[in-house]
Design a protein around this nucleic acid. Sequence first.
DNA 1: GCGTTAATGTTAAAATTATAACATTTAGTG
DNA 2: CACTAAATGTTATAATTTTAACATTAACGC
Lengths: 260, 260
Amino acid sequence: MNGRSALRLAKLQEALASGGTLHLRDAAELCDVSEMTIRRDLTTQDTAISLLGGRLVMANYPGVTPIYDLTEQQASHYQAKYRLCQRALAYIEEGDTLFIDCGSTLMPLLSQLSHFRELTVVTYALNVANAVAALPNVRLVLLGGLFYATSQSFGSDNMTAAIERLGINKALISAAGVDLERGVSCFHFHEVAPKQAAIATAMQRLLVVDASKFSVVRPAYFAALDDFDVVVTDEEGAPQLLKKNGRVVPEIVVPTVTVA
Amino acid sequence: MNGRSALRLAKLQEALASGGTLHLRDAAELCDVSEMTIRRDLTTQDTAISLLGGRLVMANYPGVTPIYDLTEQQASHYQAKYRLCQRALAYIEEGDTLFIDCGSTLMPLLSQLSHFRELTVVTYALNVANAVAALPNVRLVLLGGLFYATSQSFGSDNMTAAIERLGINKALISAAGVDLERGVSCFHFHEVAPKQAAIATAMQRLLVVDASKFSVVRPAYFAALDDFDVVVTDEEGAPQLLKKNGRVVPEIVVPTVTVA
DNA sequence: GCGTTAATGTTAAAATTATAACATTTAGTG
DNA sequence: CACTAAATGTTATAATTTTAACATTAACGC
């Protein structure tokens, strides 16, 4: 180890702390050493900075891109979610006030919202908030509280009251399990209050779930299937799936199962 | 424009949404097109993905490294902030419940919090929340509301009540202006309520400002200098600055001006 | 179905980045 | 003050990425 090396890394780390990248050339100049020395610092020492195409970037750093390569499989999962969201998008109209549920299901929808002139999004999820915060045309209301890392969302005891005060137009709800008899469920109990409150106040309720969630029951029940006006799903088989497995779903339960 | 191109980008965007990088080679395989096509998508279309050393990374995307090159000057600015935060760090103790103000001043502090065993952070800023959300040892409480992009923070009418309910130990407050006669001020009015509430409830109040903020007045006044227990600043000259320019600062106003 | 245009693929050359080997400087020691 | 070893610098070479030009394929209108 070397004191100077550590000093250089600290300097570079702070330069990169709030994001951005630093070209190796500039980093070398900044520290007044050769590029090779910076290279060696980065490989020799234990550091959070990694070198990516000649540029220094922060890795494994809070809020900043961790540098690891996604496998193709990981990446390809998003296709299904994307298609699902494209269908949900059809229900969104100019000027809507949307409640967007937590989870990864609705994420692909968010970037599409930039095509509207003006919208409002209400959410209790950090990942959703981040995606929406980047859209200048969308007003963002985040319902805060204690952060739950597993679902990237917040929970608080006055979530229900906070949601009821808002004029939510359409609620886009996701779920981890949908079962004809046992209803709609999710993994985490703190999600129940916001989901139920949104369902209660929204004028239109959309359940957005891919077909793999059907006939699945998860720990936290939050709604019956017929609490929703629309079920947006991705596979042709899904409506059948809803009709089999127990008894036939009343027409009114899934008035608009959207199938491609 | 091209529908397929947009589809590919959406797919890639979703793949990268949760961070990580994707090698151009893998991105091409994933979309079943040549690397050149992906390259063209990225340069032709308006997208948040950028190519860095042969890898796709999310740019200008919430919570993820924006890809722009820091100038040497910009880079060296962070040194000052880092040193400032190092001093503020000295006041933080194991188990504390910290109120962390919005702005960029306190950001370098957050990564240092990983060295504690257990802490709680209360904030109303999105960038702070993102940084803290990544720390497994820190409990995060985010005070939500309507999002203000200019300060990356939230404002709501029950912010004061929400803060008063929390047992905040130490308040770390930043400011855009500090003046002996005109007090401590910031740019945005929605920041006033949370700052004041935190100052009111916290057991210890720290004003963390670099010396460039002294003798500056900004639109939104929120506190007098002697509302704080400690002023953490970065330059040797700062205490003098506080004493000049009007009259002498009473000893009690700045009980612990921390100087290197 | 043919012609036209846009989209995509292929290839080779140019530019950039990474690696390795060796030269030089610097710091510490007796 | 010389000797040693670590740290840093330099150079050449290899690998990779970028760019540009041109070939091919697919989509669309008439």
